[in-house]
């Protein structure tokens, strides 16, 4: 009888021991949504829907890919790093959602932060195999490393002609003087405070309002600048300034 009891306990340990999830490992899901103002944008809007920016440019969107990195949750107990980088592609539903695991303590006062693009320290040419495979590189003549964003489409210009735009964000570089090349880290950190992490497997939703890239604090007129922006130092600075207003926290539920 004693042996049988021991055997049952042994089996219970085998069956339940391997699926024990009580050691503080929590799952956080992230969802990135997109909008033009309050108008949601999904893959089906690509090339289909027309938008008007603050300069009156009527435009469509063909492609939106961007990079976020250094995703962190911070509360009174410290900071949790939730992964290095994530390439978000509006045409790829799977890329809009991702999951991170880590020891997260429940808190109503959690701060969520992530970086748009890559910091200078992390923006090293060619080292990320996933981004190389995704063809997200920046040529060495423009400082190397990686794109922060590719927002492409077409717009109607002032003479009523259809024109392309390539709103590509990278680390700003001024290489007009080869003896004095200037680079500026134009990635930026987005921070949302008072995020309520109330349960395991919670989904945090963040929205990018694409219209804000053209709006605030700098008004962008595609008639004046629409292509060849990667090597345009001033354009990259303006993009970075406007980018600070494109993300908003939607929910944690």
């Amino acid at each position: 009888m004693k042996i049988l009891r021991f055997f049952i306990i042994f089996l219970l340990i085998i069956f339940f021991g391997c699926d024990n999830n009580d050691d503080g490992i929590n799952t956080i899901n992230f969802q990135f949504t997109h909008s033009w103002g309050n108008q949601p944008i999904s893959e089906s809007d690509l090339e289909n829907t027309l938008y008007t920016n603050v300069s009156g440019n009527e435009l469509n969107i063909t492609r939106l890919r961007y990079l976020i990195s250094d995703i962190q949750l911070t509360n009174q107990d410290g900071t949790l790093n939730l992964g290095n980088h994530q390439l978000i592609d509006l045409s790829n539903e799977e890329s809009l959602r991702f999951t991170a695991n880590g020891n997260v303590l429940f808190s109503e006062n959690t701060t969520l932060s992530f970086r748009f693009g890559l910091s200078n320290e992390d923006n090293i040419d060619g080292i990320y195999t996933d981004l190389n495979t995704a063809n997200f590189n920046v040529p060495n003549m423009l400082g190397g490393g990686y794109h922060y964003m590719q927002l492409d489409g077409s717009f109607t210009d002032d003479s009523n002609a259809n024109q392309p735009y390539n709103f590509h964000a990278i680390r700003a570089i001024d290489n007009t003087d080869s003896n004095n090349i200037i680079t500026t880290d134009t990635s930026f950190v987005v921070t949302f405070s008072n995020v309520n992490i109330s349960r395991d497997n919670i989904t945090i939703t963040v929205n990018m309002d694409i219209s804000q890239w053209f709006t605030n604090p700098n008004t962008w007129d595609l008639n004046l600048a629409s292509t060849g922006l990667m090597g345009d130092y001033d354009a990259q600075i303006v993009m970075s300034q406007n980018g600070n207003n494109v993300f908003s926290f939607t929910s944690a539920e």
């Binding site: 060619g126 190389n132 495979t133 063809n135 590189n137 040529p139 003549m141 060849g228 990667m230």
Partner: peptide, 27 residues
Amino acid sequence: NVFMDEDRGDCFHCHGSDNNPLWTDNS
């Protein structure tokens, strides 16, 4: 350099680069 120069060939956006030796985006 022509291949990689956004102001000249600008081929790299679709056709890979020294960091993407597939030389295609498969798109």
